[in-house]
Simulated scan of single mutants.
Amino acid sequence: MIISTSQVAVITGAGGGLGRSLAIQLARKGCHLALVDINHPALEETQEKLAGNDIKVTLHQVDVGDIDDMHQLYAEVMEFHGRVNLLINNAGITLQKSFASHSLKDWQRVININLWGPLYGCRLFLDVLRKESQSHIVNLSSMAAFIGLPSQSSYCVTKSGVQALSECLYAELKKDGVGVTSVHPGAIKTDMIQATLADSDDLQKAQKNYELAQKVGLSADRAAQIILQAVEKNKARVRVGKDSWILDILRRLMPAALQKGMARMARTM
Rank of each mutant, 00 (worst) to 15 (best):
L35V: 12
V8S: 06
W116N: 15
K174V: 10
Q72R: 10
I55Y: 00
I2W: 14
M78N: 03
L115H: 07
V110W: 04
S244N: 04
G241K: 12
H102V: 07
D191C: 09
A164P: 00
L247K: 14
E48S: 15
M78T: 02
G15D: 02
I88Y: 00
T12L: 01
D37C: 09
H60R: 13
I55D: 02
S142N: 13
D106W: 15
H102Q: 13
N85I: 13
S98V: 12
I93L: 12
G65I: 09
I3P: 03
G17Y: 02
L169W: 00
K242T: 15
A23E: 13
P118V: 04
D176L: 05
N209R: 11
Q259H: 05
Q214S: 10
I246N: 11
A100H: 07
S160C: 03
I246P: 08
M269V: 12
G241P: 13
L95G: 06
Q225T: 10
M254H: 01
W116Q: 11
A34Y: 06
L197H: 04
A91D: 04
Q229E: 14
V178N: 00
D201F: 03
V240R: 03
D243C: 15
L33M: 04
Q194A: 11
C31S: 06
L250M: 15
T190D: 02
M143I: 08
I249Q: 14
R251M: 13
S154D: 14
Q204Y: 08
Q225M: 04
D37R: 03
R130P: 04
I137G: 06
V180W: 02
E211K: 02
K235E: 07
R20T: 01
K175N: 10
K189H: 05
G177L: 12
S200G: 05
L212N: 04
P41L: 06
R28K: 15
P255F: 05
N53K: 03
I226M: 12
E48G: 14
S21Y: 05
K49L: 14
S6V: 09
S200T: 03
A164Y: 01
I137H: 08
V216P: 00
P150Y: 15
Y74I: 00
R130C: 14
L86E: 00
W107Q: 03
L228Q: 01
K242H: 14
V178I: 08
N89E: 03
T181P: 07
A223T: 14
C156M: 11
E132K: 10
W245L: 01
N53F: 11
A9M: 00
D243W: 14
S135R: 01
P185I: 05
N234I: 03
I93A: 09
N114A: 09
S219F: 07
E232Y: 06
S103E: 12
G13C: 06
E172Y: 02
Y155G: 01
G19Y: 01
L165C: 07
Y210W: 08
I246L: 15
V36A: 01
